[in-house]
C-alpha cells in the first residue's frame, strides 16, 4: 500500500516539475493554482498544466480564470478531452455561451492541427517528387502516377484542414471575458450606446479589432460589437489588446 502511495506521489509530482516544490495540502487549491502558475511561468507551455491550473481555479471559485485556462489548454491541444468536458460543464453551470459544435471540433478530437499540417506537407511533397520522377521508372508507371496524384490531393486536404482547425491561426484572436461582472457588448465604442448582448464572466470571444480602450469583438461567430478592452484577457499569454 505504501508503495502504491509512493508511486502515486511520483506520478503526481511529475506534473509540477522540479521547480514547483511539494504539492499542496489536499484542499489547498489556491496553493495548487499558484504552483501551476509558477511552473508555467518558467517552463514551456503545456496543455496539461493549463488544464490543471484551470481545474484548481475552478475549485477556488474563480470562473473567469478557470475558463481562460481551459481555453488555453484547448488552444495548445484542441483534442484534450478532459479540458473540453470541464469547460462544457463549467459553461453549463455558469450559463457561459460557448461556440456551437462544428466539424472543427470533430477533427481536433482526432488529431492536432500541427500534425495535420506536417503530414499534409510531407504527403504533398512526396506526391510532387513522385510525379516528377515517375518517368524514370520502367514498370507500373500508371500506378505510380496515380499514387503520386493521390498523395498531392490528400496532402493539400490535410494542410487545408490543419490551417482551418488551428485556433491560433484564426482571424479573430481568441480572448476571454475576465472581468468579474462580465461585459456588455455595445453597438458603438461609447458607454451610452445600445447594448447588443451581455456576456458573463468566462465567455470566449474573438478579437477582431482592438482600438485602445475599446475592442471590436465577435461573439461565437454571431453577434459583433464593442466591449471595454480592460474586460478581456487574450488567451495567448503575453499578447496585448492594443
Amino acid at each position: 500500500m505504501k508503495a502504491i502511495r509512493m508511486l502515486g506521489f511520483l506520478v503526481a509530482t511529475s506534473a509540477f516539475g522540479a521547480e514547483a516544490g511539494p504539492p499542496p495540502a489536499s484542499t489547498d487549491y489556491a496553493g495548487a493554482a499558484r504552483q501551476f502558475e509558477q511552473k508555467l511561468a518558467t517552463s514551456p507551455p503545456s496543455a496539461e498544466d493549463y488544464y490543471n491550473l484551470a481545474l484548481a481555479r475552478e475549485k477556488t471559485g474563480d470562473v473567469a480564470q478557470a475558463a481562460l485556462n481551459y481555453e488555453r489548454a484547448l488552444l495548445l491541444d484542441p483534442g484534450l478531452r478532459p479540458a473540453r468536458n470541464a469547460l462544457d460543464a463549467l459553461a453549463t453551470s455558469k450559463s457561459i455561451p460557448l461556440p456551437p459544435h462544428t466539424w472543427i471540433a470533430d477533427v481536433n478530437a482526432v488529431t492536432r492541427p500541427d500534425v495535420l499540417l506536417a503530414v499534409g506537407s510531407a504527403l504533398f511533397w512526396a506526391g510532387a517528387f513522385g510525379l516528377l520522377l515517375v518517368s524514370r521508372i520502367r514498370r507500373n508507371r500508371g500506378v505510380a502516377r496515380a499514387v503520386s496524384i493521390l498523395a498531392i490531393i490528400a496532402g493539400s486536404a490535410f494542410q487545408t484542414a490543419g490551417w482551418l482547425t488551428d485556433g491560433r491561426l484564426a482571424r479573430a484572436r481568441p480572448a476571454v471575458v475576465t472581468s468579474k461582472d462580465g461585459a456588455e457588448v455595445l453597438t458603438a465604442p461609447a458607454n451610452n450606446s445600445t447594448p447588443v448582448v451581455s456576456l458573463p464572466s468566462g465567455t470566449p470571444v474573438g478579437v477582431i479589432s482592438p482600438r485602445g480602450a475599446w475592442t471590436y469583438i465577435d461573439v461565437n461567430g454571431g453577434a459583433r460589437g464593442w466591449v471595454q478592452t480592460e474586460r478581456l484577457t487574450p488567451v495567448i499569454p503575453g499578447e496585448t489588446l492594443l
Binding site: 514551456p44 507551455p45 496543455a47 478532459p82 492541427p113 499540417l117 488551428d166
Partner: peptide, 19 residues
C-alpha cells in the same frame, strides 16, 4: 467526474507550425 489532475505534461508552443 469533471476531471482530476493530468500528469505527464507535454511541452507545446503558442506558435503554430504554420508560423
Amino acid at each position: 467526474p469533471a476531471g482530476s489532475w493530468l500528469s505527464h505534461p507535454t511541452a507545446r508552443s503558442w506558435q503554430p507550425l504554420a508560423k
